[in-house]
């Protein structure tokens, strides 16, 4: 790392370690990372350091391999970005296609999940959405409640709800036993497994008498579905009175397993409205902290974070 980068990360040891791991395997990426970190406020750098500590604990014993998988992930996304620039569409449009080409490929999925783990810290839009989650959702959610996340993957958001947001109990839903096992393993590694439960549950099949939750999280999930509106409508049954829905969805973000292409934050508000939810707060986190109008005009990836309630 050059001197400017070292000074920027001074006093943030987890962040220093993570960035160094990646720069060691991909020196050409340093300028991209420096731009990303120079855009961050001191508060956002604090969140970055806290999340770096968590992801390094999750990667313990295979930190270098995960760094290599991050490089591989960026190569995959580059392919998708070229395709997106040429076609103005995502590569696949049905679950059958993503299932055949992505989800059923265990080796691909392992590298994909590893690469995404570090992206939570290294990509401005991802860490900025985590910061929004800590700050804005933390200001609304009452401690002691019950949270449920669908497709919780690395378990980062469940971990934050149980530790920083002070929620008492968490439930992870997924349609895949393997994915649930990954979340369980992650929460065990982070020391919060004793307050978590795991259930095979298809959210399209939630019934009106379903278990109720004070907070439901759908982070980078709806874009993978063929019918996200139906999923939202069914999930309303599981929101407790006074409860919230937290959603992260991407705009213009070509990934091999994304089906739903949204292009503007207004599309996201409309999606939630169609699904029966009223948006209370929305924040747009851009790639490399680009001004939002510029990112939208150039069709560069944005993550929208939404706090909503049943309409």
């Amino acid at each position: 790392m050059n001197t400017e980068f070292q000074q920027l990360l001074e006093g943030r040891p987890a962040l220093q370690k993570l960035v160094q791991l990646v720069v060691d395997v991909w020196p050409e990426h340093e300028s991209f990372l420096l731009t990303s970190f120079k855009s961050r406020t001191p508060d956002l750098l604090d969140t970055s350091d806290a999340m770096a500590d968590v992801v390094l604990r999750l990667a313990a014993g295979r930190e270098v391999q995960v760094a290599k998988d991050y490089v591989w992930l960026c190569e995959q996304i580059r392919e998708e970005e070229i395709n997106f620039a040429r076609t103005d569409a995502y590569r696949y449009s049905t679950f059958a296609e993503t299932n055949a080409n992505v989800y059923s490929d265990d080796a691909f999925m392992e590298r994909y999940m590893h690469g995404l783990l570090y992206s939570h810290v290294l990509w401005y839009m991802h860490v900025s959405s985590l910061h929004f989650f800590r700050q804005r959702l933390g200001a609304r959610v009452k401690p002691g409640g019950k949270v449920m996340e669908v497709g919780s993957g690395h378990g980062l958001l469940i971990y934050l709800t149980l530790t920083e947001l002070g929620m008492a109990e968490a439930v992870a839903w997924d349609i895949s036993e393997i994915s649930l096992a990954q979340t369980r393993h992650a929460l065990e590694s982070l020391g919060t497994a004793d307050r978590a439960r795991y259930a095979i549950q298809d959210m399209h099949k939630v019934q009106p008498d379903a278990e109720k939750f004070d907070l439901i999280i759908l982070s980078h999930l709806l874009e993978h579905l063929e019918d996200p509106v139906d999923a939202l409508q069914k999930l309303r049954h599981a929101v407790a009175k006074g409860g919230y829905l937290f959603v992260n969805v991407p705009l213009n973000a070509p990934m091999p397993d994304h089906l739903q292409l949204w292009r503007d934050p207004a599309d996201v508000i409309k999606l939630l409205e169609d699904g029966g939810f009223r948006t209370l707060e929305i924040a747009s986190h851009t790639t490399q902290a680009l001004p939002l109008p510029k990112a939208l005009k150039r069709k560069i990836a944005v993550t929208c974070s939404v706090i909503a309630e049943p309409a």
Binding site: I82, A85, R298, I300
Partner: peptide
């Protein structure tokens, strides 16, 4: 940059 380079090439 790397982001706009793809748009340039396409």
């Amino acid at each position: 940059d790397s982001l706009s380079n793809i748009r340039f090439m396409v």
